[in-house]
Every structure is written in C-alpha cells, then in structure tokens.
Amino acid sequence: MSQKVASAAENVSTGPYYAANVPLLSAAVALCCGPQDEREFFWTHSEEFCRDRYLLDDRATELMLAPQDSPLSHPDGRKIPTAEQLRAVALALIAELTAAKPLTLKPAPPPLDPQLAKELPIMVGLYGYFALGDSAPPSKWEDALLRELTGSQSAKDEVW
C-alpha cells in the first residue's frame, strides 16, 4: 500500500447522516434535507458522496446517479429526474427499510434543514425511527413514502 493510499485510508469518514443499517436512507436524507455544503457535495463529488460518504453499493449508487442522465431538462440544461427514476430510488428505499432493524442508540440528530425536512415528513420520520432511535415509524409508511418521493397520486405542485 502506497503512502498516499495509507493516508487516504486514515481519512476515511462517512457522512454525518450515515447509519449503517440504512445507508440509502442516510444518503437520501443528506441530499434532501442536509446542510447546503452536504447537498452540494453530492453535485461536486456524486460518486464519492454515494460510495465513500454513505457506503452505498453499486446498485444504490447507480440509482442515485441515474437522474443525472435524465432525458428531461430545464431550458438552461439542468436535468430533471423522471418519474421512473424517482420511483426506482423510492422502491429501493422501501426494500432497504423493510429489511432493516432500527438502531437502538440515541445519537445526536444531524442538523437537518427544518424547512426542507418539513417537505419530506415521511422520509425524515423514517430516518428518525431507523437511525435515531425514535419510538415509532409513521403508520402505513410504504405507500406514503412512495407518494411523498415520487409525487404520485398527489398534487404536490406549488399552486397559485
């Protein structure tokens, strides 16, 4: 192992939202509700964000990065995720959470942006249950999470 590699290994750290039992949920919460520098890290170092900070496997990393190749875009070129891409991430999250056991520790909660967290109450509630030792998950969370993340069957558009 070269000196450079050894140095890198010593510096390995995961994201401030990382919980070993729910890595994909940890990454999603960080991307959606984390502080701006954490969210921007996703855009500047997408793969490192997924693989190194949140220890996602190949499949989960692929799902998280897929929207960057979306066929939908704004006039200025910004990529918009497709409904199919969002649904794939949401279903992977549901699969991860269905198999996960909640942590029993009570770590200090990460500094979520309250306004952004308010937009995703089901996902943030599940993070509380699985990663922060909160007492109960939201009821009927599978369908609710799918709706919240994909906007399906709801009209969560800004309205005039």
Binding site: S7, A8, N11, V12, A28, L31, C32, R39, E40, W43, T44, H45, E47, E48, R51, D52, P67, Q68, L72, H74, D76, G77, R78, K79, I80, P81, T82, A83, Q85, L86, V89, A90, L116, E119, L120, M123, E148, L149, T150, G151, K156, D157, E158
Partner: peptide
C-alpha cells in the same frame, strides 16, 4: 414536472461549482 421535494433534490444545478481535490475510497 414531478415536483416532490425529493425530485428537486435530484435536479442537477445548471453550473457545477469547481470541484476541490478530494481523497476518496474509489
């Protein structure tokens, strides 16, 4: 467009800020 806050989080900014050097597992 799909407009959940989740979709917005995945909406790539138009200009990426310059990427600082980072040491990574990969």
């Amino acid at each position: 467009h799909p407009s959940s806050a989740f979709a917005s989080a995945f909406t790539m900014p138009s200009r990426k800020p310059p990427a600082p050097a980072a040491t990574t597992l990969s």
